[in-house]
Design a binder for these strands. Structure first.
Length: 266
DNA sequence: GGCCAGGTTCTAC
DNA sequence: GTAGAACATGGC
């Protein structure tokens, strides 16, 4: 249990809806369930006092402080974005920064990110979430609190031996072969883009997401269908990332979240 | 009901 | 090396 009072650069609902993770839920207004591997924190948001209360075992406090990247300085990145967008008269990214205040790049588990973002390819977010929950329910361990049951994200030893037919009812579509293959991949190897790209079912975009969200490499800038639309429709393919060197992934996340909002996706 | 989704692979020049 | 089709399936 710990509290975050009037946090700077932390909005849990923004993060939940930003498409970087798939296992944060809001079962009732201002009550959030955050899951990562076999960890579960229930987070109560006291809106009038802008205070988040994390209900979790106290020996898990450090896990969640790390997960939400509370030790990193988002103020300086955010300020750089504002200063540069004003200088460059970049209305879109300026608006994205205002709308996306409270965004952070989570430090997610590498294995969970690896599996999740393979599922994400050519897929929509509601369906990605459904498949992941089905995967957890089938191969994870039940966790019950507050009269609610979630299932842990299966670790590799839980799924190492499964066969393709075991994945048939998870709604994975053609990605089932990729997932089955990745279950036998030596995931303890150091996260590395070049190695990820050798794996069947992982291309540049998915590798970039895994490195950004699963290895906290903020220089990664995943270009998905939404980012392609942004870079062509808004910037005529002339957007310059150099003012944001070192935190391209954060800028990308602000753009992604804002553009989807403008298109009524979140 | 058709287009699209946090793409990648396969095939054909 | 690159353009285009194929891939499964459900959200909207």
């Amino acid at each position: 249990m710990f509290q975050i009072v009037r946090p700077e650069h932390f909005n849990l609902r923004t993060i939940m809806n930003s498409g970087q993770c798939f296992r944060i839920f809001e079962p009732e207004h201002n009550v959030f369930d955050v899951l990562s591997m076999d960890n579960w924190a229930r987070v109560y948001y006291d809106e009038p006092n802008d205070t988040y209360t994390f209900d979790c075992p106290s020996d898990h406090n450090n896990f969640w402080v790390n997960y939400f990247d509370f030790s990193s300085d988002y103020h300086s990145m955010y300020k750089e974005v504002l200063v540069n967008t004003i200088r460059a008269q970049d209305q879109f990214l300026y608006g994205a920064a205002l709308y996306g205040y409270g965004m952070r790049i989570l430090r997610q588990d590498y294995w969970e990110a690896l599996v999740s973002f393979i599922i994400s390819q050519n897929n929509n977010i509601p369906r990605i979430k459904k498949s992941i929950e089905a995967l957890c329910k089938k191969f994870g361990k039940p966790m019950t609190k507050y009269g609610t049951t979630y299932y842990s994200f299966p670790n590799q030893s839980d799924v190492y031996n499964i066969e393709l037919k075991d994945l048939a009812d998870l709604g994975l579509g053609y990605r089932d072969k990729y997932i089955c293959h990745i279950f036998r991949y030596p995931c303890w190897m150091k996260p590395n883009t070049e190695i990820l790209l050798t794996l069947h079912g992982i291309g540049p975009k998915v590798a970039s997401c895994i490195m950004l969200f699963g290895a906290h490499d903020l220089t990664q800038c995943p270009i998905d269908t939404w980012m392609k639309k942004i870079l062509t429709n808004i910037y005529d393919n002339k957007f310059d990332f150099t003012p944001y060197a070192g935190f391209e992934g954060y800028v990308q996340q602000l753009m992604f979240y804002y553009y989807r909002h403008l298109n009524e996706k979140a």
